[in-house]
Simulated assay, not measured.
Amino acid sequence: MSKARFQLVHPNFAPRAKAISEPTLVEARLQQLSPDLSTELLYNAVLTGLGSRNDTTLASAVTAAGVQQWLKTVEALRTQLSAMGWHIHNERNCPLISTPDRSVSIVVMTGNRETGKLGAEDPTNQTEKGAVVERFVHGNRQLELFNQDSLKLAKTRQKETQVWVFLYHYDQTVNEVRFELAYPTGFGKKKIEEWGERLILGSIPNQPDDFDVAGDRPNAPPTVDVEPKTGTF
């Protein structure tokens, strides 16, 4: 009789996300989520945020560059998509934009240095998040556990929503912004710990002409940890 083999799994082990980086495959996957989504649209949102970052000066507050970049990235993304019929809404200070049928929502977050690249680790959000983010990550997880085609389920059941994170990271070492659209499925210690899928969107180099960009501490406004209101989004 052969002996059974057992593999010990570290309690903090998190499965790696399915990552797509080939441009044509990324574009095709974005179109599956919504015909309105494209690499160009997401690129333009990041570029707008980067421009706002570079508008800060040495006289600005030390956190101004990161804060302004996040604010304008959110605004640019929601402005573009709302013009196509997407819904702008907020869940307890968490700004979201959702497809007309509410099957897909997107939220913008700053990520750590693993954002936008195929490294040894998957990324996580830069600043701590509260109950609202925990709730929608848990909802994503439930969709994945109970249905192999969670997007189809979300489209057929109006109460269900896939929430994707538009994650970007400004790398001061190489002066570039890397960004991706990722589907969070695990949350703990106020950070996203697992991703079901990552669409790697590339990077934008930054070469401001006449000043050094102010530092980021933190890279985006801190999130208030509040209890979510009832209802879905």
Rank of each mutant, 00 (worst) to 15 (best):
P205M: 06
I204S: 02
Q158P: 05
V163G: 07
L145R: 05
F187K: 00
P205Y: 14
L199T: 08
T156P: 15
I204F: 08
F187Q: 00
V174W: 14
Q142V: 13
Q172W: 12
F187H: 00
L167A: 14
F179E: 04
V177I: 14
L145V: 05
F146A: 07
L153E: 12
G202M: 05
V163R: 01
H169T: 03
E176R: 08
Q142R: 07
E180P: 03
L167V: 11
F179L: 10
I204P: 01
E160K: 07
L151T: 08
P205W: 12
F187W: 02
Q158Y: 15
A182R: 11
N147K: 13
K152A: 13
T173M: 14
E194V: 10
E144M: 12
V165N: 01
K155S: 08
E194H: 04
L153F: 14
S203I: 06
F166P: 00
L201I: 02
L145A: 11
K191P: 15
Q162D: 05
L151W: 08
V137Y: 00
N175R: 04
A182P: 03
V177Y: 04
G202R: 08
G186L: 04
Q172N: 12
Y170M: 04
N147P: 06
W195G: 01
E144C: 13
I192T: 01
F146M: 15
F136W: 14
E194G: 03
K152M: 10
N140Q: 10
G188Y: 06
Y168F: 15
T185A: 06
R141D: 10
Q158T: 08
E134D: 04
R135G: 02
P184V: 12
G139P: 00
E176D: 07
E194D: 04
V165C: 05
A154F: 15
R157A: 14
E144Q: 12
F166R: 02
T161L: 09
R141M: 15
R178I: 03
N175Q: 07
I192F: 06
F136P: 03
Y168V: 10
R198V: 01
H169P: 01
V174N: 14
V177D: 00
V177L: 13
L151E: 03
R178K: 13
